[in-house]
Design a protein around this nucleic acid. Structure first.
Length: 674
DNA sequence: CGTAGAACGTCGC
DNA sequence: CGTTCTACG
C-alpha cells in the first residue's frame, strides 16, 4: 500500500529528462501501462470484442518516438501470475466484470457517457491484447520480451544485467526491485523524470544516508507492497524511521513485538517471502534463452520456493518470451492472432461487421506502411518545432523587455486589444495553416489556430505525408493542441457567460471592470500565446514552495453566489497541483486552484514567483476563472467544503475542458506591460 | 504529523 | 494503478 507514496518523497533526486538525452541507449518499457492508457480511448470496442487498434497505434507511436531519438526500445510484457498475487488479480477481475455489467446496463438505458466510463474501468489487458501488439512489433522488428512472471522483475533484470540502460515505467515497484535507472511519467513527447538509485543518498525528504539496498527494500515491504499488506498504521515514514534505527527487518519486527504491537503470526514468514520475491523472482534471460532468478539463489535456501511460481521448462519459457505462447495457458496463440490479423490486414471483411468502424479502418495503416505512417506522424510533429524563434522583431522586443519581477505588484490593464493585433494571425495565414493541418488529422476546420509565420513560409508544410525533411524533436508539438483548445476554450467560456447569467459580486471585478460585457469582451480576446512557449522562465524552483510570493483570491459564499476577495500570502502548501513541466522540461506555468477547508470558502490563486512574466496573464485568467465559478450555484449550501466542491469541479471542467485543477496559462496571450 | 481509505483521472475526441 | 483529498488517530 505504501510504495506509491515513495515517489513524491524522492522528488528532490528526480531529474527531468527528455528521451533525446538517451540517444544511443536501449530502454526496457513497461508495456502494460502503455497498452492500458491506449486502450482507454477504445475501451468500448475492446470490451465488446470489436476490431480496433487504437491501443496498438498508441504504443507504436511511442515506440517510434523512441526510435526517432535513436533510443532502442525493448518492450516488456507481463507473463504468468505470481501465486502471491492471485488473490489481488481475482479481485480486479471481479471489479472489471462488475463494471462491464454496469456499462451494459447504462448502455441499455441510453446513458452512453456513463456506459463509456464503465467500459473504461472494465477494460482488461489480457495476453491476447498484448499478443496483438506483439504481432505488430514482430513486423516492425521491435525488440520485446514476455516475462515468465512480472514485467517489473524482468525489466530490473535487463537493467541490472546491462542489457538495457534504463527502464521506462509508471510503477514505483522498480525502486525496491533495485533497478538502477528508471524514467517515470514519460509523456507522449518523451519528457519524464529520471530516478537513479545512485542518487538516493542525496535525497532530502527522507534521508537514506547509511541505507543499503537491502534496507531500502525492507523499508518498502514494511510500508506495504503487493506481496504483503502493511501492519496497521505502518506507512513509509514509520517504516523509514524503523529501518533507520534497527537496520534490518527482523530487528524491527522484534522491536514491534516487544512494544506489544500485535503482529500476525505469519507476518515474518511472509516478509521473508516478499523479500525473496523482490530479489529472486524468475525472469527470462534473452542471452542464454532460459529462465533464471533475478539474482542468484544461494544454496543455503530451502527448496520451498513455491511462492515464486512453478519453474518453467526452457522450451516453454522461450515460447512465452517470444510471444508465441500464452503465458497463462502456455498454449500457442492462434484464434486470437486471427483477430489481430483482422486489424492489421486490409480486411475488406470488416464491412460486414460494422460500417461505422469500417470508416475508421480506412485511416489505419496497413501492414507494410505501418512504420511509414507513424514516421510521418512523428515527422509532422517534428516540423512544428522547426519554427524558428518567433517573428516580428517588434513583438520579440516586447517580450524580452517585459519580464516581470516577482515582487512587482501587477496591474491589469486593458491592453488586450493591442495584443490582438500583435498576436493574431492574418486571415490568409490561418487558412494556409489549416489546410495543412487538416490534411493530416484535424477535424476542426472551424477552429483556426494561430500559426507561426515561419511555418507559413515553410515550403514543406503542404506535404504532410512526405517524410524526407530532417527530423527535429517533436518536443514542443503540443502547440497545436493548445492552439486548438484555446479557441475552443474561449468559445466555450463565452457561451457559458452568455447562457448562464453570471453573478459576479466581487470587489475584484468592481475595481477592474465596469460591467459584465466588458469581461466578456476580454474573454473573447484571449488568444494564443504560441511562440513564447520556448521563452518560459527557467528560473524558479517549482519543487520548493517555501518563501514564495503568493497572490491569490478567496471565494466566499454569499447566499447563493460567490464573493471574491483578493488575498495575498496564502499558504502555498495548499496548492494541490504542482507546476508541471512543459515538453522542454521547463516549468510550465499554471494557474492553480486550491481549497481552504474553512466553511464556505475556497481560495485559489497562482504562485506568482514561478510564473515570471506570466504573472499578469495569471491574473487575467483568474478573472475568467472566477467568472465561471461564480456562474455556478452551490450544490449544498448547508455543508462546508462540499458546497464549493461541486461548482469548483464543474468550473474546472468547463474552464479547461479537462479534469485538471488548473487553467493552463499557455492558453493565453502574453500581455506586455505598457 | 502520518496513515488509511475514498474519489478521481488515466486517452482523445 | 497513481495522485489527491480527507477523516481519523
Amino acid at each position: 500500500m505504501g510504495i506509491q507514496g515513495l515517489l513524491p518523497l524522492l522528488k528532490s533526486i528526480m531529474v527531468p529528462i527528455h528521451i533525446k538525452d538517451l540517444e544511443g541507449c536501449s530502454v526496457a518499457i513497461d508495456t502494460y501501462s502503455w497498452l492500458h492508457k491506449g486502450a482507454l480511448s477504445c475501451s468500448t470496442e475492446l470490451c465488446k470484442g470489436l476490431p480496433t487498434s487504437r491501443h496498438i497505434e498508441y504504443c507504436m507511436h511511442r515506440v517510434n518516438l523512441l526510435r526517432h531519438y535513436g533510443v532502442k526500445p525493448v518492450l516488456v510484457f507481463d507473463g504468468g501470475l505470481l501465486p502471491m498475487k492471485i488473490e489481488q488479480e481475482n479481485k480486479r477481475a471481479r471489479a472489471r466484470k462488475e463494471n462491464l455489467a454496469r456499462a451494459i446496463e447504462h448502455e441499455s438505458y441510453g446513458n452512453s457517457a456513463a456506459a463509456y466510463e464503465c467500459y473504461q474501468k472494465a477494460v482488461d489487458i489480457s495476453p491476447s491484447t498484448a499478443h496483438e501488439l506483439i504481432v505488430v512489433l514482430k513486423q516492425e522488428n521491435v525488440c520485446f520480451v514476455v516475462a515468465p512472471y512480472e514485467a517489473d522483475a524482468q525489466m530490473t533484470f535487463l537493467a541490472v544485467s546491462k542489457q538495457v540502460d534504463a527502464v521506462i515505467t509508471e510503477d514505483s515497484d522498480l525502486i525496491p526491485f533495485g533497478c538502477p535507472r528508471v524514467i517515470f511519467k514519460m509523456d507522449k513527447f518523451g519528457q519524464g523524470v529520471e530516478f537513479k538509485s545512485s542518487m538516493l543518498q542525496q535525497n532530502k525528504e527522507l534521508s537514506f544516508a547509511g541505507f543499503t539496498k537491502q534496507m531500502l527494500l525492507e523499508m518498502c515491504i514494511l510500508s506495504g507492497c503487493d506481496y504483503l499488506q502493511s501492519l496497521s498504521g505502518m506507512g513509509l515514514k514509520r517504516a523509514h524511521a524503523l529501518m533507520k534505527k534497527f537496520k534490518s527487518y527482523d530487528k524491527v519486527i522484534k522491536h514491534l513485538r516487544y512494544s506489544s504491537v500485535s503482529i500476525p503470526p505469519l507476518y515474518e514468514e511472509s516478509f521473508k517471502k516478499a523479500i525473496f520475491t523482490f530479489q529472486h523472482q524468475r525472469v527470462y534471460d534473452p542471452i542464454i534463452e532460459d529462465v533464471v532468478h533475478l539474482s542468484d539463489i544461494s544454496d543455503n535456501i530451502g527448496d520451498d520456493l513455491d511462492f515464486l511460481g512453478p519453474s518453467i521448462p526452457q522450451h516453454i519459457a522461450q515460447g512465452i518470451a517470444r510471444g508465441d505462447l500464452d503465458p497463462f495457458t502456455q498454449m500457442p496463440f492462434q484464434g486470437v492472432s486471427y483477430s489481430s490479423q483482422l486489424v492489421l490486414d486490409k480486411n475488406l471483411h470488416l464491412k460486414s461487421f460494422k460500417p461505422e468502424s469500417e470508416r475508421k479502418k480506412l485511416d489505419l495503416p496497413v501492414q507494410k506502411n505501418l512504420l511509414t505512417n507513424y514516421f510521418c506522424f512523428a515527422s509532422l510533429e517534428a516540423k512544428r518545432t522547426f519554427r524558428a524563434p518567433r517573428v516580428s522583431p517588434k513583438h520579440s522586443t516586447l517580450v524580452a523587455d517585459s519580464s516581470i519581477s516577482p515582487k512587482e505588484h501587477i496591474i491589469v490593464e486593458d491592453s488586450s486589444c493591442e495584443i490582438d493585433t500583435l498576436l493574431l494571425p492574418s486571415p490568409d495565414s490561418a487558412n494556409t495553416n489549416n489546410s495543412a493541418e487538416n490534411g493530416f488529422n484535424s477535424k476542426l476546420p472551424e477552429y483556426s489556430e494561430s500559426p507561426s509565420p515561419d511555418e507559413m513560409r515553410s515550403p514543406d508544410h503542404a506535404l504532410p505525408l512526405e517524410s524526407n525533411q530532417s527530423i527535429h524533436g517533436p518536443s514542443s508539438a503540443s502547440h497545436k493542441e493548445h492552439d486548438c483548445s484555446i479557441v475552443l476554450d474561449a468559445v466555450k467560456s463565452k457561451t457559458i457567460t452568455e447562457s448562464r447569467k453570471v453573478i459576479v459580486k466581487s470587489r475584484y471585478f468592481q475595481n477592474k471592470q465596469h460591467n459584465e460585457n466588458d469581461l466578456e469582451d476580454k474573454q473573447g480576446k484571449f488568444c494564443s500565446k504560441d511562440g513564447i512557449a520556448n521563452d518560459l522562465p527557467e528560473s524558479g524552483n517549482p519543487d520548493g514552495y517555501g518563501n514564495t510570493y503568493f497572490k491569490g483570491m478567496t471565494l466566499k459564499r454569499k447566499n447563493s453566489s460567490l464573493e471574491c476577495v483578493e488575498t495575498e500570502n496564502v499558504n502555498p502548501k495548499q496548492i494541490y497541483m504542482g507546476a508541471s513541466r512543459d515538453d522542454n522540461g521547463h516549468c510550465n506555468p499554471k494557474l492553480e486552484t486550491f481549497m481552504d477547508t474553512k466553511a464556505g470558502e475556497a481560495k485559489f490563486g497562482s504562485n506568482i514567483s514561478h510564473l515570471g512574466r506570466y504573472s499578469d496573464i495569471a491574473e487575467k485568467s483568474m478573472e475568467r476563472f472566477v467568472s465561471v465559478i461564480s456562474s455556478f450555484r452551490f450544490s449544498s449550501p448547508g455543508s462546508r467544503a462540499s458546497g464549493l466542491r461541486a461548482p469548483l469541479k464543474d468550473a474546472r471542467n468547463t474552464c479547461t475542458n479537462r479534469s485538471s485543477a488548473s487553467v493552463d496559462l499557455s492558453q493565453f496571450a502574453y500581455v506586455p506591460k505598457n
